[in-house]
Structure formats: structure tokens, C-alpha cells
Design a protein around this nucleic acid. Structure first.
Lengths: 222, 222
DNA sequence: GTCTTTCTAGAGAGACCTTTCTAGTCGTGC
DNA sequence: GCACGACTAGAAAGGTCTCTCTAGAAAGAC
């Protein structure tokens, strides 16, 4: 493994656990098994640039998990619930420490480090784009895919935070369940409207003009 | 306003914007308009103790918003969606900076500062307890109230993070919508089962044995 | 008034941080 | 063999951080 890769990886791991400000260059050097000088050789921009590389790397890796976790499940709703349960197990097995570095850094220093905030925004934008493309491929309308991926990412990042604080899987399980119900209702509506609506004119108009807000029509409100 | 209150308040504000590690005692002193010595006079435990006070204060204030935001809406689903929309507006009006300090600190240094993590956990536990009590008072079963409050808090904290990074209200709006649909389906089911089910034997068994997982029965899955 | 407690005020100590800088080592092309 | 770029190695500079310490002001009891 190349030294610069080792450095970025070690940074990602440290960001996960203690954030940006608390992570020092010397600590990073120890963690990566590299001297201080090497860090500045590979990353002229210093700590900030290492963090940027770590964020990009982690971001790309995270979004690849989406198809990996959802493809095995023929219906999306079950897949979503299973994915959140898997995330919960992963968190627990790492002692509730395995946060998403992108979320940590964004929460921590979005105002103080505008450059890193921009990189985090790019990463998140990719999540939204690739995620909604995947969901659209699974039969959701473009508009609904957009809504679901935003809600899913928000629920996931928030569940990380709550689970980490409370050391409990509950936030993941509850978030997974509510999202699964939402997605399940969407799928049921699509199925009821017939597969032509999906394969054919799956425009942003959705299932019908009466539900223009993008709500699943089966889950009516009082 | 007392000096110690001013210090804790300034700390909360700094935690919101730049997290714990990046916030220095001198910066805190400047922000609070108090000399360094005063901080250590009022908070013998130093920076950590100030942060602890700030977290407790903010946590208590946050959960009071729940009834304030939801009471005006006769049905819970509309209220939830409106509350998320309000949070989005608030974030935007502060330049996407108005994070929840509890979430920031938890994400940032849960591993490095176990004492603060425990306080964050206490605060979150109170959120869950008071929140689910409120939701149960609004007609949800105890089990569903528990699920909804966890999902709601996760979605909220996550939406803070995503919105802050992307500078977009979308995460709030999407999270609000999915949760509103979930809660709306619950309310519809309760109404269909008759008000006796709420006032009477609203045990953990839920609306029926076939939906023992706590899912709203109207939002069926394919 | 005087005593006592509480709080304000900021200088200073000692540790740690990021970054720079100088040497030295390894590997490759000729 | 020799030169040269890429990289390793860590010491040192200069700054900032947390926390301690001493001195003085304000407020209340008597």
C-alpha cells in the first residue's frame, strides 16, 4: 500500500472517531506509520488536504454500498429496512464508533473550514445523484427517488449520531422501519398503477395529479 | 444575565458552529465577555464542564420545542411536516449554521471525551422519553410513539448535517414528508379502529396480531 | 465602618500544535 | 559508477492551547 494512501486512510479512521480539529498531524503520522515530513511531501496543503482526500475516498466508498445492500432484496422496502439493520450491527460491532467521516466533519467545522465543507457538499451531491438514479432504476419516479434518497441519507446520518451517543441500535431500526413503510407504500402504488407507468411515461408527474406532492396515495391522512 | 449563564450560552453557540475541539477557552472568554479566570471560577472542570452545562441547557430547550411546534396542528402528520419545514427555514436564516450542539459534540468526540458522551446520552434519553410521552398523548400507541420519536430525532439530526453541508432545505423537507406519511398512516389506522383502542387497551400488541412489528396496516407492502 | 465571600481580571507556565527545514536513503536511468 | 528525483526521517521554530496563580473589585453581614 502506498504511503499517501495509508495516510489518507488513517486520516479517515481518525476523522470517524474524533473529528477534524482534535486530530493532530503527529497523531496522524503515528497512525499511518509515516513521519511528519512524508505527510507534507504527499499533501502540500497539510492537514486540510489530507482530510479532503480522506473525505473524497470515504464518500465514494459509501455510495457503493447502496446497490450492494439493496440489490439482494427484490422489494426495496425490505432492502431498506435490512440495510439500516446492517448499519446498526456494524456500528455496534465497532463499539458505536464507526461514524461516517463526512457527517462528522460537516457537523463539526462547516463554518470554520469552508474548503472542507465544499468537498463534503460535493460528496453528498454525488450520494444524492447516484442514489436517486439507483432508486429510479428500482422503479421509483424521479421525484420520489429524490425524496427518498434525501430522507434516507438524513435518517442514516442522524442515526449514526444518536446511536453513537446512546449506544443503542434503536435509532437505526426505527429510521429503517419508517422509511421502509414509506417506500413500501410507493411500491404498492406503482404495482397497482401497472408496470406500464414505470416502463413507459415515468415522468415527474407521478401516479396521478391528485398526489402532486409526491405522497404515496395509499397512505392517506385523516 | 449571570456570568456563568453567559459563559454556558456562549459555549453552546460556539459548539453549534465549530464543535468542541476547535473551541478554545480564550475564544469562549471573548465570546462571553468574561475573562479566562471567571470561566475557571464558575466551572472548576474547565472547558469540559462548560460544554457539559451547555449541552444540558440546549438539550432541555430543544425538547420543549416539540409540543410548541406540534400542538397547533390538530393532526400529527401535518404537524411533523410543518415542524421540519420550520427547522429548514431556521437553518437557512442562520446561514446553514444553526446545528444542534448535542449532535455536533456527539459526532465529534464521543470516543475521546467519554464524560461528554454520557451527558449527550442523558440528554438524548430525555428527548426520547419526553418525546414519546408527548406522542402517546397525541394518540399513538406506546410502541409506535417510541419508534416515531427515534426516527424523528434521527431524521432531524441527520437533516441538520446534510443541510449544513449542501446548504439546502431538501433533507429537511424530504425527511419531514416521509415521517408525516408514516405518522398519517398510523393516525388513520387508529381512527379506523375506533377511539376505544386508544383510550382503552392500548397495549404493546398494537392494532392487531398480524401487524405485530408495529407497522401501520394501511401502508401494506407488496 | 470592617470583615468575609464571591467574582472579575489578566499575566504567565508549560505543553502541544502545525508547518518548515535540512539530511539522509532508496530506486532507477544511463 | 554516477546523477537525480522521490521519498523518508525527525529536529526545530513559532504560535496557540489549557489551566494556574495572584491581585483587586463588588456585595452583603454585622
Amino acid at each position: 500500500m502506498r504511503t499517501d494512501e495509508r495516510i489518507a486512510l488513517a486520516m479517515a479512521e481518525l476523522l470517524r472517531r474524533q473529528g477534524y480539529a482534535a486530530t493532530g498531524i503527529n497523531q496522524l503520522a503515528r497512525a499511518a506509520g509515516a513521519p511528519t515530513g512524508s505527510i507534507y511531501h504527499h499533501f502540500k496543503g497539510g492537514k486540510r488536504e489530507v482530510a479532503a482526500a480522506a473525505l473524497r475516498q470515504t464518500g465514494a466508498a459509501y455510495i457503493q454500498l447502496l446497490p450492494l445492500l439493496l440489490d439482494p432484496h427484490p422489494d426495496l422496502a425490505t432492502g431498506v429496512e435490512a440495510a439500516f439493520a446492517a448499519a446498526a450491527r456494524d456500528m455496534e460491532s465497532t463499539g458505536w464508533a464507526n461514524m461516517c467521516p463526512v457527517g462528522v466533519v460537516t457537523a463539526e467545522i462547516a463554518d470554520v473550514e469552508p474548503e472542507l465543507r465544499e468537498i463534503a457538499a460535493e460528496v453528498m451531491q454525488v450520494w444524492v445523484e447516484e442514489g436517486s438514479r439507483y432508486l429510479a432504476g428500482r422503479g421509483l419516479s424521479e421525484q420520489e427517488a429524490h425524496t427518498v434518497i434525501h430522507a434516507l441519507l438524513a435518517a442514516l446520518e442522524g442515526a449514526f449520531v444518536l446511536a453513537r451517543g446512546m449506544r443503542s441500535a434503536e435509532p437505526f431500526l426505527a429510521a429503517g422501519r419508517t422509511l421502509a413503510v414509506y417506500v413500501g407504500a410507493l411500491e404498492a402504488a406503482e404495482a397497482a398503477a401497472g408496470p406500464a407507468a414505470t416502463a413507459g411515461a415515468a415522468g415527474p408527474a407521478g401516479p396521478g395529479p391528485a398526489t402532486g406532492t409526491g405522497r404515496p396515495p395509499t397512505a392517506g391522512r385523516a
